[in-house]
Design a protein around this nucleic acid. Structure first.
Length: 448
RNA sequence: CGGAGCGUAGCGCAGCCUGGUAGCGCACUUGCUUCGGGAGCAAGGGGUCGGAGGUUCGAAUCCUCUCGCUCCGACCA
C-alpha cells in the first residue's frame, strides 16, 4: 500500500475524551473514529488489525476442531422467550420493534440462535460432538461505555458453542477451547493467564477468564508468578487426544480475579515472593453450562440406547475488538504503538526520504515490489513529508520494521533498517536490508 | 440511574464572570527558502460558538429547556 493512497488520519494532539493509552493511541493513529457513545467506525488501519486478530482466532478455532458459521446480528425475541432470557436479560439488551410491531433485538450473544440451529438439525448422538463458532458484531447497551473499544457497546466477538452428549464429553470440549485460547493469545504476543471465574447457577469448576496483565485493566487479579510465563501448547497439539496434562499445568496454581479471590488460600498456597497482584484485562471467557439452554429449548438427540439425551453445552467468547486495545495496552511506548508482528497492520514500512529524487524513487519502487513479491504487507511512505514526520508517523502507528532509503544511502548502495520495538537502526547494503526484513517477518510468522 | 464536568475550525484550547458580532497553536492551501529523525518566512482557506426558546438595540457571553459527550459508582467479551 502506498501511504499517498491510504486513508490515515493521524492526530498530533490527544483527543481529550480518551483516558487510557490504548484509546488515545487508537484515535491518534487513525484506527478508529467514534460515532456515538461506545460505538466506533473502524478506519483502514484499525480494520487491518481487527482482521489480523480475527484471522488468528479463526485459525486456532479451526485447529481445535471448531467450525465457523455466521449468525445474524438481529435476532427474534421469540427465540429468547423460549430460553426465558427475553425477560431475564435486562436493559443491556437492545430491544427493537419492526414495522409489523414484532419484537426483535440486536444480539448481545447467540446461545439461543445456535441452540435452535443445532436442535433443528441434529438427531443422533453420532452427529456429536460439535463446536460451532462465529465472529460477529454484538451489542450490549452498557450503562457506561468507556475506554474506547475496550468497553464499547458494539463490539466484535468470537463466540463458540459446544454440543456434547455427556458432561465428560463436554469437559473435553471445554479443554479444547482452553488450549485453543492459550495458543490464540500467545500468537498475538500476549501472555494470557486463565483464571477461575464465577460459574453462575450451574456451579462446578468449568469457567475461566483469560486475563492479560496490564496496569489499566479493569479487574484486580491474583496469581502465582509461574503462570505469567507458562508453557503454551504447541501447534502440533493433538486436540482429539488427552489434554488434561496441559490443563492441570495451567490450573493447579493459584489464579483468581477479584470476585473469586480467596486471600487466605492465596497466602497458604503461594509463597510470598511468588505472589502476583496486578490489574488485568479480560480478553476471553469460557463456560460450561450444561443444559441451561438445551433443556428449555428442547435440544436433544437420540443416544445409542434409543433414549433421548439433552445436549450438554458450553460457550466460549473472545473479545476480538477488545483485543486490539488490549494488545496496545500491553505493547506501546512514548512514541506510539508497538505491534507484535502477527497483528501489525503492516509488517514493514518502506520510507522514501526524498520523494522526487529519481534514483531514490527507483530504489524504493524496486524494494516495494520485491517486498510485495515476498508476501510482505508493506506500507510505502511516498509522501513528500519531511523525514522527521515520516518517522514519527510510522512510530506512532507501530509498524514493526522500517526500511529506510534516501539519496545518501542510495549513492552508497545502502539502506537502513529500524526495529520499532528495540529502536535499533542498522545500515546495510540494500539487497541485504531487503533480505533481512523479509527473513525477520517470515520468522515472526512461524506459529508458536 | 445517582454524583461531577464538558460542548467555540479536523485536533488541542482561549474568549463567557463584567453582552458590542470570534481568536490562538497544530493541521490544511499557495509561494520562497530549507530538507537524513515532527523546518523557517510570507500570504491564505475554513466556524449558523451543540440545538431550541427567551431577555436585550445587540447574545459564544445572561436565563430556561433540550440534545450529545466524558469522568466517578453497579454490568460485561
Amino acid at each position: 500500500m502506498r501511504l499517498s493512497r491510504f486513508f490515515l488520519p493521524v492526530l498530533r494532539d490527544t483527543p481529550k475524551e480518551a483516558e487510557i493509552v490504548s484509546h488515545q493511541l487508537m484515535l491518534r493513529a487513525g484506527m478508529i473514529k467514534q460515532s456515538a457513545a461506545g460505538i466506533y467506525s473502524w478506519l483502514p488501519l484499525g480494520l487491518k488489525v481487527l482482521n489480523k486478530i480475527s484471522k488468528i482466532v479463526r485459525e486456532e478455532q479451526n485447529r481445535a476442531g471448531a467450525v465457523e458459521v455466521l449468525m445474524p446480528t438481529i435476532q427474534s425475541a421469540d427465540l429468547w422467550r423460549e430460553s426465558g432470557r427475553y425477560e431475564a436479560y435486562g436493559k443491556e439488551m437492545l430491544r427493537i420493534v419492526d414495522r409489523h410491531d414484532r419484537d426483535i433485538l440486536f444480539g448481545p450473544t447467540a446461545e439461543e440462535v445456535i441452540t435452535a440451529i443445532v436442535r433443528d438439525s441434529i438427531r443422533s448422538y453420532k452427529d456429536l460432538p460439535k463446536n460451532l463458532y462465529n465472529i460477529q458484531w454484538k451489542f450490549r447497551d452498557e450503562i457506561r461505555p468507556r475506554f474506547g473499544v475496550m468497553r464499547g457497546r458494539e463490539f466484535l466477538m468470537k463466540d463458540a458453542y459446544s454440543f456434547d452428549i455427556s458432561p465428560e464429553a463436554a469437559r473435553r470440549a471445554y479443554h479444547r477451547m482452553f488450549v485453543a485460547y492459550l495458543r490464540t493469545f500467545a500468537r498475538m504476543g500476549l501472555k494470557s493467564i486463565p483464571m477461575k471465574a464465577d460459574t453462575g447457577p450451574i456451579g462446578g469448576d468449568l469457567s475461566h477468564e483469560f486475563i492479560i496483565l496490564a496496569d489499566t485493566g479493569e479487574s484486580q487479579v491474583f496469581c502465582h508468578r509461574d503462570l505469567i510465563d507458562g508453557a503454551v501448547p504447541p501447534a502440533t497439539t493433538d486436540f482429539d487426544g488427552d489434554l488434561s496434562e496441559v490443563i492441570d499445568a495451567w490450573t493447579s496454581k493459584y489464579a483468581a480475579t477479584e470476585d473469586m479471590h480467596d486471600a487466605a488460600r492465596f497466602e497458604a498456597e503461594v509463597p510470598a515472593d511468588q505472589r502476583v497482584s496486578a490489574r488485568g484485562i479480560e480478553v476471553g471467557h469460557i463456560f460450561y453450562f450444561g443444559t441451561k439452554y438445551s433443556e428449555p429449548m428442547g435440544a436433544k438427540v437420540q443416544g445409542p440406547d434409543g433414549q433421548m439425551i439433552t445436549l450438554q453445552m458450553g460457550s466460549y467468547g473472545v473479545g476480538v475488538s477488545r483485543l486490539a486495545a488490549a494488545i496496545i495496552e500491553a505493547s506501546h511506548d512514548a512514541n506510539g504503538i508497538i505491534w507484535p508482528l502477527p497483528v501489525a497492520p503492516f509488517e514493514v514500512a518502506l520510507i522514501n526520504l526524498k520523494v522526487g529524487d529519481s534514483e531514490t524513487d527507483h530504489v524504493a519502487g524496486d524494494l516495494y515490489s520485491k517486498l510485495q513479491a515476498n508476501g510482505i504487507d508493506v506500507l510505502m511512505d511516498d509522501t513528500d513529508e519531511r523525514a522527521g514526520g515520516k518517522f514519527a508517523t510510522m512510530d506512532l502507528i507501530g509498524i514493526p520494521y522500517q526500511l529506510v532509503v534516501g539519496p545518501k544511502g542510495v549513492k552508497a548502495g545502502e539502506a537502513e533498517v529500524k526495529n520499532r520495538r528495540t529502536g535499533t537502526r542498522e545500515t546495510m547494503p540494500i539487497e541485504a536490508a531487503l533480505d533481512y526484513v523479509v527473513q525477520r517477518v517470515h520468522e515472526s510468522l512461524v506459529q508458536v
